[in-house]
Each structure stands twice: as structure tokens, then as C-alpha cells.
Amino acid sequence: MPTIYSIDALSTGAGRDGHVTTSDGMVDLEMRAPKELGGSGEGFNPEQLFAAGYAACFHSALNSVARQRKIQLTDATVGARVELVSVDDGLQLAVHLEVVIPTQPHDVAQELADEAHQLCPYSNATRGNIQVTITVTDD
């Protein structure tokens, strides 16, 4: 497969209580474990970054699917909630996506979200590995 885009990230310090940077300099963040994990919560954590990335990526996939179907999306939003859950052998992520397309009938919005889930690179990376639920709401 030909690579379309590549970026490198480096974590230094102590992981969740360290620092991350990307090779292009666009990300340069102090990382801190959330209070729920015994940290200070005074920095970013991996789950926040994953939620932001998944929401943006899925929203792009949604717009791409809509363009292919010649549907204009205005005021559409995608929210992502990432949860760190306890499982028998450690911790795992779970993702809940909320898609809102107020300008489309619910059945059309659901079709667009389902198609976007097949297209989105985050969805493809997580499929079969973690629980991802998608809820389409009208507002």
C-alpha cells in the first residue's frame, strides 16, 4: 500500500506524565494522567487526543460520503467519547460516537454514518479490537 501521509511522534519523560512532540512541531504537549487515574489532570492525556482525532477523522469521512452522494452537510457534528475501561487482563478503550445531521432525515443520516464508519481510518483501525458504538441523533 502506498503511504499517503506519515507523521512521527515522540514521548519523553514518564508516558502519561511526560511530554509528546511531533516531528513537524505542530504538537508539543505536556502529558498528565487524569485525576481518575491518580494524576494531576493538569495536562493532556492520550484518551483526549484519541477522542479529538477520532471525532475529526469520522467527521471528514462523513463529509466525504455526503459529497459522493451529492448531499450538502451543514451544521453536522461528530462527538467522540473515549472511555478507559477495566477488563480481565488490564485496561481497554471503548468509543462512543454521536453523529448529528440536523438537515437530513434520520434514515439518511444513519446511512451516511454507517458508510462513514466503513470509510474512516480510525474506525478501520479499531474494528474488531475495541467496542465502538455510533448513535445518530437529530439534534
Rank of each mutant, 00 (worst) to 15 (best):
P34W: 03
E36R: 09
G79L: 08
G41C: 04
L97M: 00
R69N: 10
G25F: 01
K35V: 07
G18C: 05
N124D: 06
D107K: 00
D138I: 09
K70I: 02
V27N: 04
Y5R: 03
T22G: 02
L112Y: 01
V99E: 01
T12F: 10
A76I: 02
T77P: 03
S60M: 14
D28G: 07
V65A: 04
S86K: 15
S11I: 12
D8F: 07
D114N: 03
P105E: 05
N45H: 09
R69C: 07
N45S: 08
H19L: 07
T135Y: 03
I7Y: 10
A66M: 02
D17N: 15
V20I: 15
I7Q: 13
S11W: 14
T22R: 02
G53C: 01
A52W: 02
D139E: 14
A94E: 13
G90K: 09
V100K: 13
E98Y: 05
A66S: 00
E111V: 08
Y54V: 00
A76L: 01
G41D: 05
V132H: 04
L37D: 07
R81E: 15
K70D: 13
T103S: 15
N129W: 10
E47C: 05
G18Y: 11
G90Q: 09
Y54K: 00
G13V: 09
V99R: 00
A56D: 09
S6P: 06
M31A: 11
V100C: 13
